[in-house]
Write a protein that binds this DNA or RNA. Structure first.
Lengths: 342, 342
DNA sequence: ATAGTAACCCGAAACGTTTCGGATGTCAAG
DNA sequence: CTTGACATCCGAAACGTTTCGGGTTACTAT
């Protein structure tokens, strides 16, 4: 059934050891011998048994990724792009990807244990850190290589390798953009409080208000669920309670779309009546009606850098920089009313 | 470092064999012994080494999925949902998922060989079949379990297990819907010709025209790339060449969004001036402006059924029905002008 | 002739699990 | 007292690979 090293050994007249070493590129095998063995291997259609190899060498050439999901709201476009960056880079470096999607909680930790202690993966990629996240301490206690997309919350130390985007600067830029356009009553739709980056985004909002000496009004700040529907509800709530609000900063694009829907639902016009901004710059942001002003984060690149960092750690050559904060950039489009008739 | 059966054996005073059998639930071990062994295993934090288990038992409890991608245009929302259905169901059945994304071609086949002959996976899930698809014959020749999302093209036999949606009926319903609204010049934006389901969608379009005794005009039929941009280009081309066209059937939602953009770009109104329909019913379809009339396919369910079917095949209990065509359903929204002022 | 060296090769053990084919002990029936 | 049946348990082999620690040969320098 399966072609093994033994088959090649028998057919080529060499030992299993030599066949193994020839195929692995060791220098202590005659070049002619190697060619012959390679030829036989090709004829037989040999493919190494990766389980056996992994068992023996304690290396699986596989990375693990557990996508955090909430109820039905699964991998949205963000994780799409993330998965692409991670998957591409892993493949280019000859690593496979073991993927699971788990709701945070006990089962999620079981999935981590299974991957890590089942020796299935050489390293793990974590995403969407939460407050008091149990995953990093666990992996640290196991001494298992891992990298994280996102830091811990501002008030917790982040003593692990990560790649994050500068949310604080991003939201600050978006808020400042609205202030520059003359808005004084600016709503904020935050991610759920348990998400680690929520703190940074709030800071950015506060920064911008402080700089402009505008009062910080807590009642203008609502939490959403990162989905479109959460943005919609928050948007409706803000608009009905505080009609003076003329701009809303949403902390991701999906919620921004919901906010836009809420605005339109109330018979107002996005951009001219109420300005909106998002965060992520998903492809859909550009095509929304009106196109969404948003903070772009390089999602693909984040995945890519994470994998490179992780592989470096696995092979014992960690990059000198293992805590990276990438810049974010404000992309101004019509939803902020910049080109509107304000 | 790692806790093995030997450790449990030493600590509990039983043999490795008995420990293994106790944990595996065999009946020839004393219940009291079993409890004791389980307890020791828990105290030690035992997690089976899945590589060793797989090597010995020739089962990995892992399914393989290679997402077909074109250039940068990666897993779009469709594969998101698909991945969710597949991932959820796999997890519920205690299977892991090995994922890769490959551009069709030589490298793609290498990825398949690697997964299959490297003995990493117990079965494979294929998606987006193409004409003359080399993957199914390969897997058949290897006698490796697999299931497919989608059939072969209408003119090729499909002698493998699959779950597909009834594209033909879906497009036929969409086209007939336009005809019923009085449209006589209806454009069609097809997927690339090498995709297997393109033939079925074309048939559906032809069916509807034939039924209504409307002439089939080949020049109304264009091919897109399944992306938004392809729909945009096709839409512009149709509208500029044939101003009499008053409705366009796009073969997926992404292309339909592009067509809508093209219509608006030309100063026309979607729905009233030119009606549009899509296929898939992505979440974004409902929120588009105007909301998109489209053919819904149960993407999550397809993934779910595929995994159930595949696991059945793996464990030797294939379901009686291994070639499933699920119904599709037309969802009428504003983009077809049904509620418009036509 | 001998020792040393380089080039090439190989046997055997090990990774952690499952499973085959018994082995042992106990007890009831004959 | 023997036999058989049953309930428990276990030794050893096997899955396919890598790697450690050599071994053999042929050549070079003494």
């Amino acid at each position: 059934m399966q072609i093994t090293l033994r088959d090649i050994a028998r057919k080529s007249g060499f030992s299993v050891t030599t066949v193994s070493r020839a195929l692995a590129g060791y220098q202590d095998v005659n070049e002619q011998t190697r060619q012959h063995i390679i030829e036989v291997a090709n004829i037989l259609g040999y493919q190494p048994n990766l389980l056996a190899r992994g068992l023996r060498s304690q290396r699986t050439q596989t990375l693990g990724l557990i996508i955090p999901t909430y109820d039905a709201g699964f991998p949205n476009e963000f994780f799409n792009q993330f998965l692409l960056g991670v998957g591409d880079t892993a493949w280019r470096n000859h690593y496979d990807l073991l993927v699971s999607a788990q709701v945070p909680g006990e089962e999620e930790m079981a999935a981590y244990r299974r991957m890590v202690k089942g020796l299935r993966v050489d390293g793990m990629i974590l995403a969407r850190t939460r407050k008091n996240d149990p995953r990093m301490p666990y992996l640290q206690s196991q001494g298992h290589p891992f990298v994280v997309n996102g830091r811990n919350a501002p008030d917790e130390p982040s003593d692990f390798p990560y790649v994050d985007v500068d949310s604080r600067m991003g939201i600050r830029a978006a808020t400042a953009h609205f202030i520059a356009l003359g808005h004084e009553h600016i709503g904020l739709v935050l991610p759920p409080p348990e998400i680690a980056y929520t703190g940074y985004r709030l800071q950015g909002y506060q920064d911008a208000l402080r700089e402009a000496r505008l009062p910080l009004r807590d009642e203008y700040i609502l939490y959403g669920d990162l989905q479109r529907s959460g943005g919609y509800q928050a948007g409706l709530a803000l608009l009905s309670r505080y009609p003076q609000i003329s701009a809303i900063v949403a902390c991701n694009d999906l919620m921004a779309f919901g906010v836009m829907a809420a605005i339109q639902e109330r018979g107002l016009e996005v951009g001219s009546d109420v300005a909106v901004s998002g965060f992520d710059d998903l492809p859909a942001a550009e095509y929304a009606m009106p196109p969404l002003t948003t903070v772009r984060q390089p999602i693909y690149e984040i995945g890519q850098r994470l994998v490179e960092m992780l592989i470096g750690i696995i092979v014992g050559k960690p990059p000198e920089e293992t805590q990276i904060v990438l810049p974010s950039r404000l992309i101004v489009r019509a939803s902020s009313g910049f080109n509107g008739r304000r």
